[in-house]
Amino acid sequence: MALVRVRKLSRLFDVSKPWLNRVIERRSKAFLTAVSEVDFDVEARSTYALVGESGSGKSTIGKMLVGLLKPTSGVVEIEGVDLASETDAAKIDAIRSDIQMIFQDPYASLNPRWRVRDIIVEPVASRGGNTDGLAEKLLEQVGLSKQDAGKFPHEFSGGQRQRICIARALASEPNLIVCDEPTSALDVSVQAQVLNLMSDLKDDFGLTYVLISHDLTVVRHMADKIGVLYLGRLVEEAAPDALFDTPKHPYTQMLLEAAPQMDGFGREVQPPEGEIPDPINPPPGCAFHPRCPIAQDICRKERPEMRKLGETRVACHMAE
């Protein structure tokens, strides 16, 4: 059974002006569709990556997975439990300690007034668990030293802080860690250290990662399965090699073509046309049709369903 099951997941944000302005300007409420009917499964002990550009809804999905945001509609089940509808407090608590998150900005994700020890053990201490020597043990597991437990976050570099975040995420012995752009604030050489550490810990602890990133090189290196998002919709899902070698969706093709390549000296690419449309008024039919080179009439009218093409799932009328 899949560890995470996501079905028809949608999230709207109310971006209306204040009530009085709406009355005076005679406008109705406005909603931004951040995530729209997304389906996917994450197998236990695998790494599932969500990639997309800004506004693709990848971080919103991440927050819904860990329960920081409630879905507008649809279901997120973790180990068979839906946090949004479950009423059994004990079950919710058990699932909560099974899910952790690593955030993008290592400077904002550690409370500057807390000592590292208190930060790391908080997930356990807040449940009244035993925290003797826990922080020290975890610090060594993420490549820092025991003595660091008594220090404050500002005494560490960005990469070291991200290690502390990882140590905190491991404290409650979770199964699932949602990593929201875990290395995009780090320099390349430090990124390699953190990615290696994440791989090692995954093997040692049998972790499952949901990796949210805009960086295609990171995603390709880490993921077992990749979901590509565009304007809140999942447009393609495949294993890394299949996705990078034979992308099916025109958007995936465009994205891969546009990404700068380390050996692309003087590469002349035809840069992609246009930009991501306004998510408050997304285009009808397939959201990508205004930029799509192979769009037909049907793409403007009907939203494509996810369908299987070999091992790949793709939401495109034209893909083959």
């Binding site: 909560r96 955030f103 900005d105 550690l110």
Partner: peptide, 10 residues
Amino acid sequence: EYVQAARLIG
């Protein structure tokens, strides 16, 4: 994010 991290663990 540190506040979100605290919310996350309930």
